[in-house]
């Protein structure tokens, strides 16, 4: 199980690296799709079908929109010059990456083994959730009953995003 997930995560890293370095933007977008669809398989392997359904649907719609945009505009990437400032930025990114790696290494030493044990808060959600919410699907019970504020916030974020897109893209005013 852990070996399978490790292999899939390796594929995701390869796809992401190819997406950065591809000369053709269309192939970069499709290589970015590798990351999303591999994540779907990971979600199915760790038994999270709710997340898998959402991820596969969102990934498909995003890929369709990105491909439609790329086909209608340019397919070649505009490369900038690689001067001293670029070297400084790359060096700073590398230092921050090493610090983060060291911190995550220390943090993961104090966690439980992968797939074992639950957090204290999730025990309160799992025990007797069907009686409290009346919903057989525990995920729906959590996101709409225990964590209703979160879902309201997510819905509001989506509305705000649409408002921003309409504000930026509207050229002529509506009569």
């Amino acid at each position: 199980m852990e070996l399978t997930i490790s292999v899939i995560v390796g594929f995701m890293i390869l796809g992401a690296i190819y997406a950065i370095h591809a000369r053709d933007i269309l192939s970069a977008v499709i290589a970015g799709g590798i990351v999303g669809y591999s994540l779907v398989i990971c979600f199915l392997l760790i038994k999270a079908p709710d997340l898998a359904i959402v991820q596969i649907v969102v990934e498909t719609i995003t890929l369709i929109i990105m491909i439609a945009v790329v086909l209608d505009s340019s397919r070649t990437e505009a490369y900038g010059r690689f001067d001293g400032q670029a070297y400084a930025t790359a060096g700073a990114a590398l230092v921050i990456l090493l610090i983060l790696f060291w911190l995550f290494r220390h943090a993961s030493a104090s966690l439980d083994h992968f797939g074992e044990g639950t957090l204290r808060m999730s025990d309160a959600y799992i025990n007797g959730a069907v009686e409290k919410t009346g919903s057989v699907n525990l995920v729906t019970g959590v996101i709409f009953d225990f964590r209703g504020y979160d879902t309201l916030g997510e819905a509001t974020v989506l509305v705000t995003a649409v408002l921003g897109v309409l504000t930026i893209l509207r050229i002529r005013g509506r009569k």
Binding site: I61, I65, V69, T133, G134, S135, V136, T140, G141, F144, D145, G148, T151, A155, L158, V159, A161, V162, V165, L166, L169, R170
Partner: peptide, 26 residues
């Protein structure tokens, strides 16, 4: 489950209309 199906329907309509709005705007 009381309100949960109603919440689901509201969020479903909202998400569908949002994604469609972004696509149509493009």
């Amino acid at each position: 489950a009381g309100f949960l199906p109603l919440y689901n329907i509201c969020v479903g309509i909202e998400v569908a209309a949002s994604i469609l709005s972004i696509f149509l705007a493009l």
